[in-house]
Design a binder for these strands. Structure first.
Lengths: 180, 180
DNA sequence: ATCCACATGTAAATGGTTACATGATTGC
DNA sequence: GCAATCATGTAACCATTTACATGTGGAT
């Protein structure tokens, strides 16, 4: 009964069309995982709970001998999804080891801090490349343009920020070298 | 022995000077919590583990009759912190309910999607205000300028992005109204 | 034959928060 | 006298991941 995180991942995924648990997991891994992940250990039990609550309904749609249960939203489920979408409360949780390192970077020499910034930028650039690949493949992945643009813009901003910080640190390092 | 997330929060906090568990928690709540939180339930057990491993050492420094244990980094602890800082691997985990909502916003009417964007922007603006407050208080909180600037710049970028997306949606909504 | 993808599911382990217990000190 | 803060700590709870179990189907 109590709605957890995975609840709305499932309701949202089913709002895009009927799907099996396996297909929901695939959708999540290709898209929402960037800002909201979900594992089989959450998805399958939650599907049964949501069906018991009448928010989704499942139907057996085997492929050959391979069993398969396809779920779709009920009117109640669509209503619950809308209610959540319009609720102004939105949890944000971030665990960013890179920022934590930056926070304590004072124990490093400037050249070492530079190496740290460089590795942080490399990670953002890798993330950016993955998102650009999603963009290149177009609508095929069902990634809404709005969210994709947000992600790309955000990564670009962070790459730029790292570059600027690196340049500042280089100047500082050079100034100290001259001074010594 | 195995290093978890809270390990480096503690080592990092102690790199800024000797501190008690209570003071570490205060530091975290005022600063790193934006990108890495920690609770007493993690901090106190970890302090004992780190002391057993020889990375920190604690000394009883009561204030009056109030018992108090102040820890400081050992050379091994400082070394472990440096090794972690220079390790290019950095975990990033994000759970952003706002982006998840945006991802499934297609089930909403344009005017409703606008309300959603508005609430998302409001949250970022609130976060921005908190960071500006930290900035106004200056170095007192021990927030490194680099990380603070990153946070402020990032929030500003996100607020701007929301504003731009809102303007686009308004145009779309108006266009649909004219068409109908 | 073997491997990978499809498909559903669960048990154990992990990681973390919350709530509580205890007691001293400070300010109103 | 009371509430808030200082200070340490633990147990219960919660969410989530990981690893496994089971079986089908298609490709090499």
């Amino acid at each position: 009964m109590p709605a957890s995180g995975v609840t709305y991942v499932i309701l949202g995924a089913l709002s895009l069309g009927p799907r099996s648990g396996y297909e929901i997991k695939q959708l999540v891994d290709r898209s929402t995982r960037f800002f909201w992940a979900a594992s089989y250990g959450q998805i399958y039990p939650e599907l049964r709970r949501l069906e018991a609550d009448g928010l989704i309904s499942g139907a057996s749609e085997p492929r050959g001998e391979r069993r398969r249960i396809v779920y779709q939203l009920t009117p109640d489920g669509r209503e619950a999804l809308r209610d959540w979408l319009l609720d102004p409360e939105s949890l944000i949780e971030i665990r960013d080891e890179g920022l934590l390192k930056l926070f304590f970077a004072d124990v490093l020499e400037p050249s070492e801090a530079l190496a740290l910034l460089h590795s942080l930028r490399a990670r953002r650039e890798a993330a950016l490349a993955r998102l650009r690949e999603v963009e290149r493949q177009g609508k095929a992945l069902g990634f809404p343009a709005l969210v994709l643009e947000f992600g790309i813009g955000l990564q670009e901003w962070m790459v730029e920020w790292c570059s600027a910080a690196e340049r500042r640190l280089e100047q500082k390092r050079d100034a100290e070298e001259v001074a010594s």
